[in-house]
């Protein structure tokens, strides 16, 4: 469930990046890399888990699924916070700069 949540986040971000390209005013690129990187790594985790559990891997207990989804959402939130920090620090639209030097 964590893998699935992150993959969906990565796909949505990639679509958003493509729509905004080549300007990249919202700096969605780092968010895409982050989610795709984590998705690839969790995919390996899933393969190892599948090798261990077999078909049982596809029928997780509802409590485990909920916990994994909770973790997935938390991971997505952490990614968004990191992206927000990058966006505010790089400030491609100059909004933060304008707010700081407002007369």
């Amino acid at each position: 469930m964590t893998l699935l949540t992150t993959v969906f986040a990565a796909i949505i971000c990639t679509i958003m990046w493509y729509k905004g390209a080549p300007k990249s005013e919202m700096k969605v690129g780092p968010l895409c890399w982050m989610y795709w990187g984590a998705s690839l790594m969790w995919f390996i985790d899933a393969i190892f888990e599948y090798a261990e559990l077999g078909a049982e891997f596809f029928t997780p207990a509802p409590v485990d699924m909920l916990n994994d989804f909770y973790l997935g959402l938390s991971v997505v939130a952490l990614g968004l916070i990191i992206w927000l920090i990058i966006l505010l620090v790089k400030d491609p639209k100059g909004v933060v700069k304008a707010a700081l030097f407002k007369k």
Binding site: T6, G29, P30, W33, M34, Y35, W36, G37, A38, S39, L40, M41, W42, V75, L78, G79, I82
Partner: peptide
């Protein structure tokens, strides 16, 4: 970016 981002979330 792929490696740092993935490692951070993991």
């Amino acid at each position: 970016k792929l490696l740092w981002g993935g490692s951070a979330l993991l």
